[in-house]
């Protein structure tokens, strides 16, 4: 398959995502291994430092493992609004049809 982004860019942004989310190498490797990744933990670590190239498939498995772990992190608390109005409610209220709901 053809790449949409260079391998090095994928590697760099994957390493950045792991760091930004505060994921441990152990947890990343466990998920990666669980979804059919074949490199060992040392190889993954070396890969993230740019010292060990993974195949495109292994790199995508690693990417998917990282994204799953990020998706599973608890969301930050959000601030509530004063009302629960939706766009549709507002449109109905002002009698306009110019806005998509």
């Amino acid at each position: 398959m053809t790449r949409d982004i260079p391998a090095d860019e994928q590697r760099r942004l994957t390493a950045h995502a792991i760091k930004a989310a505060g994921l441990t190498l152990q947890s990343v490797w466990e998920r990666y291994f669980g979804i059919t990744g074949n490199a060992d933990m040392t190889e993954i670590e070396a890969h993230l430092y740019g010292a060990f190239p993974l195949s495109d498939e292994e790199a995508d498995i690693l990417t998917h493992a990282v994204n799953e772990l990020i998706n599973e992190m608890p969301a930050l608390p959000r601030a509530p609004y004063s009302t629960h109005l939706t766009t549709a409610d507002v449109v109905r209220e002002i009698g306009s049809t110019g806005i998509d709901s």
């Binding site: 398959m1 291994f33 669980g34 979804i35 059919t36 495109d56 498939e57 995508d60 498995i61 998917h64």
Partner: peptide, 29 residues
Amino acid sequence: DALVNRDLIGQAKGILMERYKISSHQAFV
């Protein structure tokens, strides 16, 4: 758990590869 999951995903990849005549990487994608 990881071993059970690997096996399951391996089966799914195998079925997709056979069904669509694609590579293991394409099946994973």
